[in-house]
Design a protein around this nucleic acid. Structure first.
Lengths: 154, 154
DNA sequence: GGACATTAGATGCGGACGCATGTAGTGTCC
DNA sequence: GGACACTACATGCGTCCGCATCTAATGTCC
């Protein structure tokens, strides 16, 4: 189906697992491994800390973070929260639409965000931080920083 | 509950979400976001491709990869497979012990690895690539490379 | 050699994910 | 204005994960 030759030549170079030819391939895999390792370590620690200290997951925090960013983008905001469309959040987060929907549901159940039906487009939903949600985000952001300081060369 | 001040000052700097004080903190968060984004994109694509083309997950592939590395570390190997202890694999992979155990079980069920009871320590298990397992790893390694080339600046 | 801590691996459990699909509400074209 | 494609979000489903715990086999100390 494919060229066995490519792999054979890789083996001939003696570096196993495709670490062979132009060296850029090997370097690519090496970069990926390093990325994976770095991410995994931090994600594990961060998820654990966020869960232990604030009862939320990394994804939960990401959503809170987007909402917090959005609500005081320039330090000037009168209304407590205008809210963001779920879709809009989705554009700034690495989560499937379904996972995002459930994450918002979870956050709502925890009282950290509010869902407000959109008047203009009744399919849509606005999501806004509650008071508790903002407090949780503030505290969790501090936790994030601590974890990053420890695990991301600081 | 905590110092609103810190967050306020962040707002004053106008960059939201803790991008404020010593700049190293903000940079740290920025690096983390970048790492997260980079990882998420690649992981999603890689997992999809591996699943579609070889019916395995990223974790499955990682295990196959460790086994393949181990079995012909210098291009010189007579015996088909000596096998690796699960524990040993665990030292080189970012997966909990339970997840690793299940991953090996999955791979065995798919006929990609064999489990051999260890004679010396009857608690232990040796895991070795089968012929199919090696073929799958070879093919999947090519897939990985393609995905990395596309998603990791290559 | 028998009691006790320790280790290797398996497994029950609940949570989060992505994919596919369902369900409203919206735009569009005739 | 009614049919039809499309959008925004929710949900059923199967899978993978980590944590806690269990089991069986070593070691260890007396």
């Amino acid at each position: 189906m494919k060229t066995q030759d490519q792999e054979k030549s890789a083996q001939r170079r003696g570096t196993a697992t495709g670490t062979a030819p132009g060296s850029s391939d090997g370097a690519l895999v090496e970069r990926w491994r390093s990325l994976l390792s770095c991410y995994s370590g931090i994600a594990l620690a961060l998820d654990r800390e966020l869960h232990a200290e604030h009862g939320i997951t990394m994804s939960d925090f990401e959503v809170l973070d987007r909402l917090a960013e959005n609500s005081h983008p320039s330090g000037m905001e009168g209304c407590t929260e205008a809210g963001m469309r779920i879709q809009e959040i989705g554009e700034h987060i690495h989560l499937s639409q379904s996972a995002l929907s459930r994450t918002v549901a979870r956050l709502e159940k925890s009282g950290l965000v509010e869902r407000v039906l959109c008047e203009f487009d009744r399919r849509g939903v606005f999501v806004a931080l509650t008071k508790n949600g903002r407090a949780c985000h503030t505290a969790a952001a501090r936790t994030r920083l601590e974890v990053l300081r420890e695990h991301l060369a600081g």
